[in-house]
Amino acid sequence: MGRDDSKMKLLTIDDSRTIRRVISGIGAMLGYEVLEAEHGAAGLKILEQCSQDVGLVLLDWNMPGMNGLEVLKAIKADNRWQHIPVMMVTTEGEKDYIVKSIQAGACHYQTKPFTQEEMASRIMEAMGMGGGT
């Protein structure tokens, strides 16, 4: 894989601390440290500082300030970060939103609500875990 996935961190960008907490819990279950940002600008700032540690971004759609699609486009437009996989995590379940996200470079699209198992398996998939054993 060319990177040490076990040291990679997850970054959740979501204005709901409940959802950030859920994702942190699932990350911990899978052995990842989870960085938290409550809006897009804060998320991009974290990437500015430590994008090399971030193995996956989990991104909400509806947030104050930049919306998720704008954040996604900003990540994909910056050659320092564009390699980082981004998973949308949102209540928006309509096809249009999904199409736009995938076209803009999202690797996965997880609708809320989700079970812990669903989210865990999506993260494992995105982080390239689960093979072998």
Binding site: S16, R17, G93, T111
Partner: peptide, 23 residues
């Protein structure tokens, strides 16, 4: 703060789910 955010998120999830599925 956790409780308030939790209630808000539930309202958001109920609303978002309903919106998506009424189509």
């Amino acid at each position: 703060e956790d409780l308030m955010d939790g209630v808000a998120e539930l309202a958001n999830l109920f609303g978002g789910w309903t919106k998506t599925n009424v189509g």
